[in-house]
Write a protein that binds this DNA or RNA. Structure first.
Length: 288
DNA sequence: GCGACAG
DNA sequence: ATCTTGTCGC
């Protein structure tokens, strides 16, 4: 069980770096993360979406899928400790927003690469719990999360983390590439070169395969951008399913559910930051 | 060795 | 993550 602390730890910032973190706390986070990951491993033996062990795919074209969720968090102020978390529910496949909710929040933990979930997932999980209570019929069947799924140093990004907490299938959608030891054998430059070289006919996507052959995720350019996004499986679904779902949700570079959540929280900050202090959460429903 | 690191 | 106008192109 004993490990050389420094090399095993994912974050090796210099002690004077603004991102330096107490090694003990880092170790605790890592332990907690691995424990949660174990839950994901066992629970994913029976995927809600994706190919099962017997080869059957329960959702060839997502029949029965009616509600897709999106989450995002926007920050305000000087530091990045105060934020507004947003949860948006869309119909599928129409992608009409039927429910929005947001919540102001403060974070105790700093952002630590590899441990984003410990900042963001708890609030989002709370919001989902609240939705379960107030609007049981609007609980989404799958949630698109702003951040990585298994494309992560320990195979457990914020999408996995939230999925396990809320017990809902999730997809990780990152706007930036997270590279780490043992990860995909591709640099961001490699990926850029690939998608830039792609003609309209060739596929503007690239499997993120590691040296071991493990497929961590998929870099893909949707809409008309040349900037890729990075898809990976979160909870209870496989990569192929995640990629297909994201395709069906994309009108622009960022899939609609996440985009809607992003706009919701930004708009709230923009319009209500003056009266910042009173309403600390809010819900709106259009149709049931 | 140095830099880089989802949000 | 956030601070930000206009601008070039389809």
């Amino acid at each position: 069980m004993a490990e050389p602390a420094s090399s095993a730890l994912p974050s090796s910032f210099a002690a004077d770096s603004p991102l330096a973190v107490d090694p003990d706390q880092l170790a605790r986070l890592r332990t907690a993360q691995l424990a949660l990951r174990q839950k994901l491993v066992t629970e994913n033996r029976d995927l809600t979406f994706g190919t099962r062990e017997d080869g059957s795919d329960p959702v060839a074209s997502f029949p029965g899928l009616q509600l897709v969720g999106g989450v995002d968090i926007s920050f305000l102020g000087e530091g990045f400790d105060t934020a507004v978390a947003g949860l948006v529910i869309l119909t599928y496949p129409e992608l009409k927003v039927v429910h929005t909710s947001f919540r102001k929040c403060r974070f105790d933990l700093p952002y630590i690469p590899g441990f984003l979930a410990f900042r963001e997932a708890p609030v989002l999980d709370q919001m989902i719990a609240e939705l379960r209570h107030t609007h049981p019929t609007l609980v989404p069947q799958v949630i698109l999360v702003d951040g990585n799924g298994v494309l992560h140093p320990r195979g457990f990004g914020v999408a996995c983390h939230l999925g396990v907490l809320a017990d809902i299938p999730t997809v990780g959608v990152a706007k930036n590439y997270l590279h780490f030891n043992g990860g995909p054998a591709l640099s961001i430059q490699d990926i850029r070169a690939h998608v830039d070289a792609a003609s309209p006919h060739t596929t503007r996507e690239l499997s993120l395969v590691g040296d071991t052959g493990r497929v961590w995720g998929m870099a893909m350019c949707l809409a008309d951008t040349t900037r890729p996004i990075f898809i990976s499986a979160g909870h209870r679904l496989d990569l192929a399913t995640a990629v297909r779902l994201v395709r069906h949700c994309c009108r622009y570079r960022i899939p609609e559910p996440i985009r809607a959540a992003d706009q919701l929280t930004r708009r709230y900050i923009r319009e209500r930051s003056a009266e910042w202090g009173e309403p600390d959460n809010h819900q709106e429903t259009d149709r049931c």
